[in-house]
Amino acid sequence: MIRWHWSRQSNLRTAFERLAREHGPALYGSALRMARNPDDANDLAQDALVRGYMAFDRFEPGTNFKAWMLRILTNVYITDYRRRKRVGFVGFDDLSTNGQEPFDIVDPKPGPESELLSGAMDSEIEAALGMLSDDVRLTVLLVDVEDLPYEEAADLLGVPVGTVRSRLNRGRGIMRRQLAEYARDRFIAVGVVKGAP
C-alpha cells in the first residue's frame, strides 16, 4: 500500500515536472505581464506551480494544462499578490515633470490609427498596459493576450460577463490613446533627428 502510494506520487511528480517544463516559460510570461517585474513574476509563477502540483491529482490528463495553470496563476495573483500591492497614487511633488516644462495636450493624429496600432512596439504595449487599473489590466490580459473567451475570463475574475465587456472597452480605449501618443512622440523624435544638421 505504501509502495503503491509512493509509486503513484512519484509518477505524478514526473508527469507534473514534464508539463511544468513544457509550459513553464509561457506561464512565467503570463506572470510577468501580471506582476510587471521579474522578481514578483518569478515568485508568482513558482507559487502557482506549487499550488498546481498540490492539486495535480485532480487534473485530468489530456486536458489543457496551460489553461488549467493559467486559472491557478490568476487566482494566486488575485488573492495573494494584488492584495500586497500598494495602490500607486503619486504625491503632488511626484507630479512634477522632472524639470521639464509643462506641455499642452495635443490631438495625436499623425496618421490613421490602425497603422499606429500595428506599428506599436512591445515596450509601448507594456507601458500602455501599465496605465490601466489593475482590474482592467487583468481583464485585457486575459482576453486580448491570453485569448480567453469573455465567459471564461468573467468566471476567473469572479465578475459578470457585462463587467468584462465594459472593462475591455475601457482598457482598449485607454491603450489606443496611449499607443497613439507614443507613436506621436516617436513621430516627433524622428522629425527632430531628420531636422538635425
Binding site: P25, A45, Q46, L117, D122, D147
Partner: peptide, 30 residues
C-alpha cells in the same frame, strides 16, 4: 481588430524563457 492582432503578436513575442535557476527552485519546493 487591429489592436487585438497587435496584442496577439505581443503575447507571442514576450517572455519565452524563465529566469536562471527557475526549475531548480521549483524542484526544491516540490
Amino acid at each position: 481588430r487591429t489592436l487585438r492582432l497587435r496584442m496577439a503578436r505581443y503575447s507571442a513575442s514576450s517572455a519565452t524563457t524563465v529566469p536562471a535557476g527557475f526549475f531548480r527552485q521549483l524542484g526544491e519546493r516540490l
